[in-house]
Amino acid sequence: MAAVDADADIHFHGVELRLRSDEPALLDVLRARFAALPLRVRGGADAVLNFELHARDGKQQSPAPDAGMRSVYESENGDAWYDDGGDRLLVRYTGAGYAVCLPRERRVLLSVDRSATNAAWIATRPLFTLTLAELLKREGMFFLHAAGVTTDAGGILLPGSSGSGKSTLAVALARAGFGFLGDDTVFLRRENGDLSVLPFPDQIDLSETSLDLLGPLSPRTIRLPGSPKWQFDPVHAGCAVIGEGVQPQALIFPFLGGTKARLEVLSGDDALLHLAPNLLMTERDATQRHLDVLADLVAAVPSYRLELGTDLTAAVAAVEQVAANEKRQDG
């Protein structure tokens, strides 16, 4: 086994992420994901979550799931398995890497094939993000696949799967003056009885289609090999990054399509059904708490569906209208 010879500590909403790797380049990519968050004074973290990232030579033989494991996630590129008895999550990216997440030990062991062209992307995106979400779930911080922007009245969340247009809309809103919480992921946490949206102003991932819609942005910074999209630093892209938690104000589910922007009210029940795929069905009690938080969110704020159309200006105006209405009602 190669020595783990580089490390990085990242503070993330009261939790310390202690990252160690035998491949410093992986840590550089991860640091870049958190670079837009304000720096925190070291120490005082509620919990320390440990990640060991290994880059190894040769195709990775991912461990086979044990007999007692059940499938909790499946995609064309990989899968995830969970062992109820051992409280262990195994995430596999076909042929190129895997991660073992041990929530009771607050620890993740991650391994990728350094010769795979997309090794850095696999390690720092799907494998890292999925296991980070599982560890944070146990700390009461619940994953939501959503972009987020803010007004002075709170956070407007834009949930959706990859390709729904949430990053495109979030960047358009940020350029129109909204604060920026993130383009892909936020976390929800109960704070003194209220729900708080915790930003994750990660690097922004934009496809060529999004760039065509948005027009000139900042100089293209990175395209990690194997990544389907371009990565932009949100600060360099002109976004006013919000570092602290905010109260949720509205949920708007964006959908790419149509020619004119069209906003429709969505029932709370429908919104909850749309959010259910955010749940990774691992440890029962933590999963129940995750579902409870999502249900509390849709009960607390109004939900809408927004077909983006081809004119982002109109889509931005629709969100501005929602923000103004909610602010009036709050006032």
């Binding site: 709370g268 909850l272 579902l291 249900a295």
Partner: peptide, 9 residues
């Protein structure tokens, strides 16, 4: 795991 939504489902 289960949870009642804000409306009726």
């Amino acid at each position: 795991v289960g949870r009642r939504g804000p409306d009726e489902a």
